[in-house]
């Protein structure tokens, strides 16, 4: 009996063979958008057996340059709503524009971490006609929202896209789990392809233009009925290949294709079309 119990429950032991240590690295999450505030997160990873704790770093030096211009240092500022995170608010550099090449570098003075670098660009803004939206009562307490949009041929060159849905609140720009939106289905000519599967943690989906069977996308989702009305922000982003590969892999929990040289993470650009909808 005792033996059988051990078979069924908590049959765990420490891994007796040592795991080869892997060094920690500087980690960067830098997604730069056209006419958006430039926010870059820098931290260090915890490598296996490295002894380092994975954390955000406020002591890093972060520099950015546009095209062939000179590197400009970014300023560190603590976000008032989240004391644990640091982000760098871009104050003196002009907003990056479509087509611009961005270069990035960072290091942590006094540490053993290698200097990290990255290169990306800003894609062309997706120009689409305004999506058609309709709402209906889904069930008690919920609306069903339908958004119909066209992805024209002109966007073919941009190739990679992301759709995001978020409840929009003035004070809630970085909601970690925006779960106001539920049961999203995304149909393209009645085909639900893997590339269009909704990621509920990020409330977004990534897709490749070549995944589409035709130009029509049909987005359907539920929202909770707030009787005073809610605002849903719809975004269609054109993203770089690095962005697409990185978040696809991360979503898959498999190999993460970092484009940070000597480090981990992502440095990528996007350009967006967005529309705010009042749901009542």
């Amino acid at each position: 009996m005792v033996i059988s119990i051990s078979v069924l429950d908590s049959c765990e032991v420490d891994l007796s063979d040592s795991i080869r240590p892997v060094d920690s690295r500087i980690w960067v999450n830098a997604i730069v958008g056209v006419k958006d505030v430039v926010k870059i997160y820098v931290g260090n990873t915890s490598g296996v057996n490295s002894g380092d704790k994975a954390e955000y770093r406020d002591d890093a030096v972060v520099k950015l340059k546009v095209n062939s211009g000179s590197y400009n240092r970014l300023v560190y500022r603590i976000d008032s709503t989240s004391a644990n995170k640091g982000y760098y608010y871009y104050g003196r550099l002009e907003n990056a524009l479509e087509g611009d090449t961005l270069s990035f570098m960072s290091w942590i003075p006094g540490s053993d971490f290698d200097t990290v670098k990255g290169v990306t660009y800003i894609p062309r803004k997706p120009e689409i006609s305004e999506p058609v939206v309709s709402t209906s009562i889904a069930s008690t307490g919920y609306f069903m929202v339908d958004i119909d949009l066209d992805i024209p041929d002109s966007l073919k060159s941009s190739k990679y896209f992301e759709i995001r849905l978020k409840e929009w609140k003035y004070s809630d720009i970085n909601s970690e789990y925006p779960t106001i939106v539920r049961d999203v289905t995304l149909l393209n000519d009645l085909k639900l392809s893997y590339g269009l599967t909704w990621n509920e943690k990020l409330n977004s989906t990534l897709f490749d233009y070549s995944d589409l069977e035709d130009s029509n996308l049909h987005l359907k989702f539920k929202v909770k009925n707030n009787y005073s009305g809610i605002k849903i922000n719809f975004e269609l982003r054109a993203v770089t290949k690095d962005y697409y590969d990185y978040f696809k892999a991360l979503d898959g929990g498999s190999i993460v294709n970092s484009n940070i040289i000597n480090g981990s993470g992502i440095f990528a650009g996007y350009a967006k079309y967005s529309k705010l909808y009042d749901i009542k």
């Binding site: 033996i3 051990s6 078979v7 049959c11 765990e12 032991v13 420490d14 891994l15 007796s16 040592s18 795991i19 915890s46 490598g47 296996v48 057996n49 490295s50 002894g51 704790k53 994975a54 954390e55």
Partner: peptide
Amino acid sequence: TKGFLYNTDFKQVYVFPIFP
């Protein structure tokens, strides 16, 4: 613990100890 990736964070699961 979030933030660490030490050896002890990894556990090896086994199924059959001694089995008469």
